[in-house]
Design a protein around this nucleic acid. Structure first.
Lengths: 257, 257
DNA sequence: TAAGTATGTTAGGCAAGTCTAATAAATACT
DNA sequence: AGTATTTATTAGACTTGCCTAACATACTTA
């Protein structure tokens, strides 16, 4: 009668790894899990049994491992936390990929949904607001030391003026392009800001459930060979859309980072 | 022959708690440690023994617990990580005190010095750069939604213009005040930006060791009754300065958050 | 100063998570 | 098809970190 409601860090790791392996290689073999997690094979077996007991994976000895619906939900939550933390470290804090990944692995067990959401919002804000923007963020170590070194803060003034002209430019250009682009038109790696959700089908519900509002950032992760389905990332969530669905989401393109 | 080099999360927690208790109440009693950490008394004894084995605390049965120099160094590192993470969540992410504290408790074991340092730099940058600033950060959930809702981005433009005039104002006022203030003049809670380190004594070395440069943020945490010593926070480190030492650090006052 | 109470320690047990060594099943290769 | 090899599992041991119960020491105060 081992009825543990909370998932230990260790089990979260296993669940995450299983999810990612299934994504990547279609099946999650015990061997691969052990390798990724740097543990012995028997440890994996033990974890699998524990996860099965909690009804998060379908497991039987020597059989294939799959996630139950509940397990998938849980795994996605962990994966999202990991991704958000890593993204934040890489894009905002300018930490190297490898270190960000390793740190995210350890941090992902510690943060609540609330903190993750704030992190996403903040990162979006920083990358979106013309007063900040990706360039500003990446220069944070340099530009403002310069400003501090110069008490008259000339450089800050210049910097802000530059920003102001950027906004004006964007404003002019913006009015032309905004109406035309939809999510379907973006290429992998491109990012956009949501303008409107046309057609109120289940898609609208699905992404509205994630707290997506007008102005939220969306990134196209992958587009399948025939343009269908389209893999997107919104607010740290991954989502798969059919081509027609993506066509119903009006976005304005965002400049590459 | 238990020679473990790395400190477990659990032991880090004990070390941190001991350090804080000594700070607050002069002595760390087993009872209080147990209460803070929500563990039983025997668990504390066990942890104390483990820490003593690692030469981080001076411990003998029924005796007072003190930190060894090595233990103090380690404890300070943990405390700093905790403080930096919490500060970031509270000040930048606008997370509530309680949740930020609890989350920091769990995250503090996961982040490397590098990440902590970047976090500090970024938070300082955000709070210092006139293009961002505390007000901007706190409004991040609101101001830019407004901007996004309005494709012509009028509000952003206004916002930036406001920022520009702020800089001009600060520039005028700044030239008068900068020269006069030193760290000794700040009251608890006030923050300033380091202008110069006058006199090259050991203090200069001590704080220069922490990566403090011209422009770094400094916050006065506590001033003892007679103005000596002064407790300050720099780059997430806590430091105690004598009055004369503080007088040798020229700062420009920063507006309250 | 001699109970009586608060505080700290030892002993012993339990759960989680890991390991190695040995065994069983599945897959691959003549 | 039958052996070889790879892959997965069981068994058993160890560590960490926690607990409760019982015992030991230190402090308090009548």
């Amino acid at each position: 009668m081992t009825r543990t409601e909370t998932l230990s860090e260790s089990l979260e790791d296993y669940l995450e790894t299983i999810f990612l392996l299934i994504r990547e290689k279609a099946v999650a073999r015990s061997r691969d899990i052990a390798e990724r997690l740097k543990v012995s094979r028997p440890s994996v077996t033990g974890a699998l049994q524990a996860l099965a007991e909690r009804a998060l994976v379908n497991y039987e000895p020597y059989g294939h491992v799959t996630l139950t619906p509940a397990g998938e939900v849980e795994a996605k939550r962990v994966v999202r936390r990991h991704g958000v933390l890593k993204d934040f470290m890489v894009k905002v804090l300018s930490i190297g990929e490898a270190e960000a990944d390793a740190t995210a692995c350890r941090m992902e067990h510690a943060v609540s949904k609330n903190v993750v959401d704030r992190l996403v919002e903040f990162a979006e804000f920083v990358e979106t607001c013309p007063r900040a923007g990706a360039k500003w963020v990446h220069g944070f170590g340099y530009r403002c030391q310069e400003a501090a070194a110069d008490p008259s803060q000339q450089s800050c003034e210049r910097c802000i003026e530059q920003c102001l002209t950027d906004v004006k430019k964007r404003k002019q250009k913006g009015n032309k392009t905004i109406a035309s682009a939809t999510l379907k038109d973006l290429k992998p790696g491109e990012r956009g800001q949501i303008e409107r959700l046309l057609g109120g089908g289940p898609v609208k519900r699905r992404i509205a459930d994630m707290g997506v509002i007008k102005g939220s950032l969306v990134e196209v992760v992958r587009v399948a060979p025939l343009g269908d389905p389209i893999d997107i990332k919104i607010k740290g969530y991954h989502l798969s859309l059919r081509k027609e669905e993506a066509a119903g989401i009006a976005v304005s393109r965002l400049p590459e980072k």
